[in-house]
Amino acid sequence: MNNNYYNSDDLAKFGNIGEFQKEVADKFFGWYGEVFKDSALSAKEKSLIALAVSHAVQCPYCIDAYSSDAYEKGYSEAQMMEAVHVAAAIRGGATLVHGVQMMNKVKDIAM
């Protein structure tokens, strides 16, 4: 371990997780590859979804990988930022919609 929890060089080492447990790693990478193939959704569309989700889960490795991938696949800066706003809006909305629970509770106990 070094002094940083995150190191950008570690992204390239992702494939090495099989060193400690090969069988499930192989399954994961096989599944991962299938998920991102052109299918009912195009590989390009999936890249943008991955970019948005990367921001929602705030994974720096994923943001690194899918910022490059989405841009390489041809999304513009504005399109990519709008995708991030979608993630942010859902995250913000997810917090805010719980306000209804709060209101319900307060209304239950208030005179």
Partner: peptide
């Protein structure tokens, strides 16, 4: 040609686009 420091995407897909 990529307009930046990256590789081209799939030729088949990009041609369609």
């Amino acid at each position: 040609n990529p307009a930046g420091a990256f590789l081209p995407p799939s030729q088949t897909m990009l041609e369609k686009e």
